[in-house]
């Protein structure tokens, strides 16, 4: 996603930043779900609030990654036009990984002893 020539129209960088951040946040929720299943110590570490258990850490890590990466990517891509098709593909793959990682028959494949 190297910056390309500036367009007279609105640069697509801010939208690319939001899309990839959305994908990253989603993929992180999927990854946290898999990791918590695989490791009891990670599951314990993600238990940020006992009444709701590790779900709090798994989802809030994803939400934090979403917003932080959005801010970072926004400053990287603002005012720039990037290859939208490639960025969209990356974002959709990340979003798909998020769905896969949260699907019980998948994340239970990684269940620890």
């Amino acid at each position: 996603m190297t910056p390309q020539t500036m367009n007279e129209e609105l640069p697509n960088g801010p939208v690319v930043a939001a899309l990839i951040a959305g994908g990253l946040g989603s993929a992180t929720i999927g990854l946290m779900t898999v990791l918590a299943e695989a490791s009891q110590s990670i599951m314990n570490a993600l238990n940020w609030w006992n009444p709701a258990g590790p779900l709090t850490g798994k989802t809030l890590v994803g939400v934090i990654i979403f917003f932080v990466s959005w801010i970072v990517l926004h400053f990287i891509f603002r005012g720039k036009n990037v290859n939208f098709a490639r960025a969209a593909t990356i974002a959709l793959i990340l979003l798909g990984l998020g769905i896969l990682g949260t699907f019980p028959p998948f994340f239970k494949l990684f269940a620890g002893e």
Partner: peptide, 30 residues
């Protein structure tokens, strides 16, 4: 299956919806 999928995958909905709302606001009529 049901609850364990629901409690995790539901969090993807607001993330994706926020991205779409931002993009439509940013581009507007364009």
């Amino acid at each position: 299956l049901g609850m364990e999928w629901k409690e995790h995958v539901g969090w993807l909905a607001p993330i994706a919806a926020t991205v779409v709302a931002f993009a439509v606001t940013y581009y507007g009529s364009a």
